[in-house]
Nucleic acid binder design. Sequence first.
DNA 1: GTGATTTGACCTTA
DNA 2: TAAGGTCAAATCAC
Length: 270
Amino acid sequence: MARRLPKSERSPSPPPGDQRDAAIQELSKGSELATQLMAQLELIPERELDRRDDALANVRRLSMSLSSSLSALRSEREHYYLASSSSSGAGPVAVTSVSGGGGGGGSRTRKTRRRGSSETVFITTTPENDGFHWRKYGEKNILNSEFRRLYYRCGYSDERNCQAKKYVQQENNKQPPEFRVTLTNEHTCNCNALFPDQASSSSTSQVLDFTKASVSSPLMDSHVGAPIFKEEEEEVPSIDESTRSIMSTIMRNNNDYDELSPRSWNGGCQ
DNA sequence: GTGATTTGACCTTA
DNA sequence: TAAGGTCAAATCAC
């Protein structure tokens, strides 16, 4: 039942949370602690060399995993690109963060981005590959551009009041073609498709299948190489097992991280 | 039948 | 007033 609600029946969205920032902070702390632990291990006497080296190796691995988690989260915060595919060999080419003038507000029920909520702009050959479920709601010819601009909103915009939006406009006819993607508003739906193996624990988990027209753009050809996230799929190329495990551990230990928790990744997407 | 996309009209902003 | 952005009925795909 995805029929859009009449304007009058819509409720205002809650402000976007900062759970991701909290997660980043916790990961930073973990990283610092790992560094300290490494220093302490160096002090273990040489007669226990074997044990010391094993422990050191483990801590180094832990530290590296924390670092990659951090960098992945930071990257996602900036342009939602945690789930970009390595199989396609194509990713964002350039990223530009733009901060607008500060919320439209007012009594208008309709707003345009010209009034300036924060937005992220980047060029990519895989505009569809950001791990989120988008629904197209419009398409326009743009002045001085030979390509039409496509308008997407979060697939859970209605049921979860998620205000995330995405504008996709082809930039050129290169092979593969490049697209300018503009993301506005953070997802508040808790419905990204990261870690689909965890998501698959729920029979109603949200999956992304870009072979369906429903979540892809007519501009997106097969050569773009979009990943297909299905319930049966187990691998997310951009995140290794250790990173995933550490993030899960941290999130289990902090219930405030609803936006990032596995529970939210799958159960929330119904 | 259900849910997503298309598309022309309408709204908002500059 | 032009252009960008959004709405929502019609249409399409499954």
